[in-house]
Design a protein around this nucleic acid. Structure first.
Lengths: 183, 183
DNA sequence: ACCGTAGGAGAACGCTCGTTCTCGCGTCAA
DNA sequence: TTGACGCGAGAACGAGCGTTCTCCTACGGT
């Protein structure tokens, strides 16, 4: 097995376990068992657990934002594109293994102790907010709408994580529609 | 020192440390050091760490909801009372040691492993949502407004926790005002 | 004064887990 | 063929921590 595939398999296992059970309750040995990558190899690829955690969050950030953008780009109408963000949340919340927002959860777990993880969470959220802002601008809506839309999305993520179900996404989308109409 | 004060001091220390540094990174010995309550006493009062955690969340839930209600009750106008919820959030976010919502953080840390903690978080959030619903009803506004207002509040909490600052509360309040006016 | 008990300080125990080490095997260059 | 090397399996090491135990002191009732 070459290094590249070992790295991918390690990250696949790490993502599944870290996201599903939390970071601190998953040991390096669990990753080894789930990935088939030996401990020696794991430590060659990621010199410490913290670096595996960072790589997990970074790769997931790329994919998450990519999937969001892909969903939005199916629509041409600028106003519809904003609502498509909430459609994407709804789809995400409905996934079999959905367990809340990985970054919000990681922040609760490690934000107080790992400045690097905290920084990654802030970057991810800032990027999401910036993306929303670009959609608002493209729709010719006032900048001031970005904050409320962002808060609705975050509220939906945290609520769906805690209570389960896709309803928070639908509620957020209707509220977003209402706010957009009010201007 | 009698049992009642020992219990209060233990809970005071637990709250300060659990909230400030996360639950898993605080050991029972840290609680002993910060509270002056011996390990023997601690284990008489709380047979296991998990029970101390539960007591911490429960006592904080009582106080948090009490402070919110006190803030809301300063106002007579039913519509103003809804906005006062966001005023309270703003005040909270501005506190020196604010580090996000204790329940959201705890859920990220322990929600996947402790069903009891997860249940306490769900209860707390449900109680908050119910309270908002009662304010919406009292103001003669449609029930459908409760969900969006709740999501705005949750989004503000999670965002203030991650990025710091009181701005999310102000943004949420303005969005709430706009949603209330749209009906 | 004397004993029984409660409580404090802190050592001790057992387990988990991040990280490293040992050993043995297969591979490939010379 | 041989020897150096890479790698996997898993033992080993060391730290942290939840929980319990030991020992000693103080005090209250007789």
């Amino acid at each position: 097995m070459d290094s590249e595939t070992a790295r991918e398999q390690a990250l696949d296992a790490a993502e599944k376990l870290f996201y599903g059970r939390g970071i601190q309750s998953v040991g390096m040995d669990d990753i080894r068992g789930a990935s088939g990558v030996s401990l020696k190899r794991l430590y060659q690829l990621f010199p410490a657990k913290e670096q595996l955690v960072e790589a997990y969050l970074e790769r997931r950030d790329m994919r998450w934002r990519g999937l969001l953008a892909a969903h939005v780009e199916r629509h041409a109408d600028p106003g519809r594109r904003i609502l498509a963000v909430f459609d994407r949340l709804e789809e995400w919340f409905g996934e079999e293994d959905f367990r809340g927002c990985a970054w919000i959860n990681s922040y609760g777990e490690l934000g107080a102790r790992s400045e690097r993880v905290a920084g990654q969470v802030r970057s991810h959220k800032q990027a999401f907010r910036d993306y929303l802002a670009s959609l608002v601008t493209a729709a010719g809506l006032p900048d001031a709408l970005t904050g409320p839309l962002y808060l609705l999305a975050e509220g939906a993520m945290v609520t769906a994580g805690i209570t389960g179900g896709t309803r928070p996404a639908a509620e957020a989308r209707e509220a977003a529609r209402s706010l957009m109409a009010a201007r």
